[in-house]
Design a protein around this nucleic acid. Structure first.
Lengths: 367, 367
DNA sequence: CGACTCTGTCCAAGCAAATTG
DNA sequence: ACAATTTGCTTGGACAGAGTC
């Protein structure tokens, strides 16, 4: 009296093929080195019967015996932007290569759902967890960490924050300040002295937070680098996607002598909008004004004018995070190897930035 | 000699609390109606010991006995656009409400990864599968369907295609032609006779395909409705995100008398770009030209000029799909209830469309 | 007899050890 | 002795049925 007469098991296959369970097991796991020999004749019969009955191994039962799920849980916030896309692609690729499955869960910025997700990962005895927390540091965060670590499940945190180091816990991320500095230094090295900023601190709360932090760093680091940012050169919008287009009209309304020579946008959407608006109004980017993006999100390279941008190395985050986590899981970390990886952000040069027009004129005059 | 001395089990809790496994089971599953009574004193002790040892139920073992995983696998293509976001949010919400976990997997438009994902869902004995296939109809597609149905796992397909109906298989989707017609009829009812189209058939392959199909329907349905579309009013770009901005300059170069009175964009990104470009150039939307979007993706309502758009009802897809699937799983479908749900697309009126300027003039003149 | 508590069996697969020819 | 094949025990949890006071 089976619950699922249609669902084949090792036993049902063995019975149908008139052999023992062990023979079936040996044949269906032929890739592994098993000390059970099976004659060709029987092997053939078993394979045929297994196929006829549609045998698919029950991974839950397998887990119970081996203690391994070979699955990594990935807890993300949401997919309202493509930010995680390159990262996740890398995680899948590496997981495939090393024989691990990936199970993704989204918190949708809801603490309770995040808790349930993490708790599900633990209940399913996943091998490891990659987690982009909603709010690092809070009580919920600590409870979740506590649960994961009490189960001895290796954890990898992703984010711009720095967590205290700990056994069985790793981190991959960037430093927000360093990322801004990568852009400021680049603009400075091109010779820009008066720059503008495009930001969107009036957008939805979570992005706003990030925009505010970036804006703060931009002002400070630009000033440290001897640059001037006038208040009227800080363009702010609520529309993250197309707000930049509007900035273009605002700039064109002024005499050219009072333009900044470059604009550092707080994300690529703003930069692309700005470039599109300027181009549409007949302003040449970068000849008349440079535009620098942020994030280096997918699409920058194929934009009308390919956008020079500060890469947060999200693909690299994926490329570094899963191998690190798997090394912890498989305990093949050499002593003293890093548990915390802070990635250097990188300036990706394309077409939207050049030296300021004045510098170019000056150099011409000098010749 | 346990594999995981630190991972508590019912037995280890029972041993530590000096009671039987059944008592521990009864206490830890107190919510369910179990015919095992436990005294308060022992209950307290068990709860305390379970907490101390950090007991977390092994869902894999539980599945083995009950035959239920209470998990729905959701197979998606990718997250390069936010299209799935509203759908997935609804799926999570409904899953939470009915006690099911959601496990998401991405194919990243890779057939092999799609196969592995589906096969993983089957191996894990998930209760049901929601699947947005990469290429419906192909051999890989049929193999996957075959696997799922041979395991008797209820399947729900999402897409614009129509699959043959079948037991244990459902579908939720829209009809592409009907969606285009929703927009054309609206523009027609506003009095537009000469419309333009914004499209991006030169973009990456999968989106291109969709844009080409939509363009075809647009031409045919507009003509059926007695509208004129001049070839020069079909604006085409490769840049899905900001290409629309460039169209604005192209339109402005012409004498106003040769403008279409409305432009139907093949997606909201194009529509938003077009509106941003036009606004930036001083053209009033919708007073001088109407712009109609497509998809009604998140953000339309908060754009500078809120975009009127054809809603594909992605949230509604989520809202309808999981309940239908769960009803199949729990076998509480009344006889003759629909296995295939084709949703009606809906016109979401905001601010970017109005009657054409000429009509308005005429009506003024008539007064 | 009822209130409480426990033992034994099952689930599907993995695999060591024993058995067969 | 040896290859081919099988049996029996294990995993963690669910729960029926059987004790115990």
């Amino acid at each position: 009296m089976m619950r699922n007469p249609e669902r084949a098991t090792v036993s049902s296959v063995a019975k149908a093929a008139k052999v023992s369970r062990a023979s079936v097991y040996a044949v269906l796991n032929a890739t592994k080195n098993i000390n059970i020999r099976v004659s060709e004749k029987i092997e053939k019969r078993i394979l045929q019967v297994a196929d006829e009955l549609g045998y698919v191994r029950n991974e839950n039962a397998r887990m119970l015996v081996t203690g391994k799920t070979n699955t990594i849980g990935v807890m993300l916030t949401g997919m309202e932007n493509q930010f995680f896309d390159p990262m996740l692609k890398e995680i899948y690729r590496i997981g495939d290569g090393r024989g691990y499955s990936i199970s993704v869960s989204f918190s949708s910025w809801d603490m309770e759902r995040e808790r349930r997700g993490i708790s599900g990962f633990c209940g399913n005895r996943f091998e490891g967890i990659i987690w982009v927390p909603i709010t690092p540091g809070g009580d919920d965060f600590k409870r979740n960490i506590g649960l994961i670590e009490s189960m001895n499940i290796p954890l990898l945190l992703i984010g711009t924050y720095e967590y205290p180091e700990s056994d069985n816990r790793c981190q991959v991320g960037i430093r927000e300040e360093e990322s801004v500095s990568t852009g400021i230094e680049y603009l400075s090295s091109l010779g820009h002295r008066r720059i503008g900023i495009a930001t969107a601190t009036a957008t939805e709360c979570r992005r706003r937070n990030m925009h505010e932090i970036r804006l703060g760093h931009m002002r400070k680091l630009a000033s440290d680098a001897g640059m001037i940012i006038y208040d009227r050169d800080i363009f702010n919008t609520s529309d993250n996607a197309y707000g930049g287009v509007g900035f273009a009209a605002e700039i064109l309304r002024r005499p050219r002598s009072s333009w900044p020579t470059a604009i550092f946008a707080a994300d690529d959407m703003l930069a692309r909008g700005l470039i599109a608006g300027l181009s549409c109004l007949g302003v040449k980017v970068p000849d008349q004004i440079s535009v620098l993006g942020f994030d280096d999100s997918p699409g920058n390279e194929t934009a009308g004018i390919p956008v020079t941008s500060v890469s947060l190395e999200t693909a690299e985050m994926g490329r570094r995070s899963l191998p690190l986590l798997l090394d912890v899981i498989e305990r093949k970390l050499p002593d003293g190897s890093p548990q915390r990886i802070i990635l250097k952000t990188r300036l990706v040069e394309r077409k939207s930035c050049s030296s300021p027009p004045m510098n170019r004129m000056t150099s011409k005059e000098l010749i």
